[in-house]
Simulated scan of single mutants.
Amino acid sequence: MVLLQLVDIIADIFAQIGPQHTPSNEFVPDKFRSKWYLSPWQHAFEFVCYMSVLVPLSIWSYHRAIQHPMWINQRSVRPATTLDKVLGVGTGVSYVAIVYYKTLAPSMWRLPYALQPCHTLTLLLTILTVARGKMANLLFQVYVTMTWSSVLALSFPDMSDYEHLGDCINYFYEHVMMLLVPFVLWYTGRFDYIGSPSWIMFGFTFIALYHAAILQIVVLVTEINVATLMTPPAILKDIGIYYRPAQYMICFILHWLYNGVISVGVSSLATNPSSLVNAVPTPKRL
């Protein structure tokens, strides 16, 4: 009963800050505008449900994660090398390009899309190329678990709102760098990748809370359908009003499948670090 009253209160707030009959920005094309595909009450109900599950799960998985021997006995993150700084410039330029191209739209209506998870992760990756300390190590562990989003973006590119050639080129450059840079940071010894089940779960709760809490408010206030949180993508339209729980479930499955492969691959390379070199024949072998 108390939870339902809380849902009613949040629903009223969402209705007030969300899309109204008169659009707040007339320049936003209709297909990108936030609309009440779901009722404010359902938005509020899902919000309470996600918070009730994800917050405790995040706390639990975090406390389990930091008990891992590799975390307890972690070495200091080495100072940034020239290579690290070059990689940081490479990802930083990409993020600046993202923001620049999105500000070119009339009234800068595309700017909220800079908060899309992949763009936010690009900014985080830029920071990780030079950051030090336990927090940097924690964010690296979390970052790696979420790189499946880049694989998905490259496999099924959605550039429906991209209008400039440089923006389109940067789309692919950004997502390739999202996969390449963390591998280089690990392979060159800047970070040690843990990849335990607890860290994988914590990574999922991290990005899921970003969606369910921060982006939920963004799509309401800006009236831009960031991360399809207001209206479903074409592939999920047939599911109807339950598309968001289905979306989270699909992401949960992909998250575990992808990170399972990453953990096995990293373990294999760590056990036999010369495997990459041995895989390439030397002139004597040819």
Results as ranks from 00 to 15, higher is better:
L4C: 06
D12K: 15
A15M: 04
G18C: 10
Q20W: 00
F32I: 08
E46G: 02
C49L: 10
Y50C: 06
Y50A: 07
P56N: 02
W60P: 03
W71Y: 11
I72R: 11
I72M: 08
P79G: 06
T82V: 00
V86G: 05
S94L: 02
S94F: 00
Y100E: 07
Y100A: 02
K102E: 12
T103C: 12
T103S: 15
A105K: 10
S107C: 15
Q116S: 11
P117M: 12
C118K: 00
C118Q: 08
L125H: 14
L125T: 07
T126K: 09
F140A: 12
S149E: 13
A153G: 05
S155K: 01
F156Q: 07
M159S: 05
D167C: 03
V176H: 11
L185Q: 08
Y187G: 05
D192P: 06
S198E: 09
I200E: 07
F202K: 11
T205L: 01
T205C: 01
A208E: 00
A212P: 05
A212E: 13
Q216L: 12
Q216V: 14
L220E: 08
V221K: 14
V226Q: 00
V226T: 00
T231K: 15
Y243I: 03
G260A: 09
V261W: 12
A270W: 04
L276A: 14
V280H: 02
P281E: 04
P281R: 07
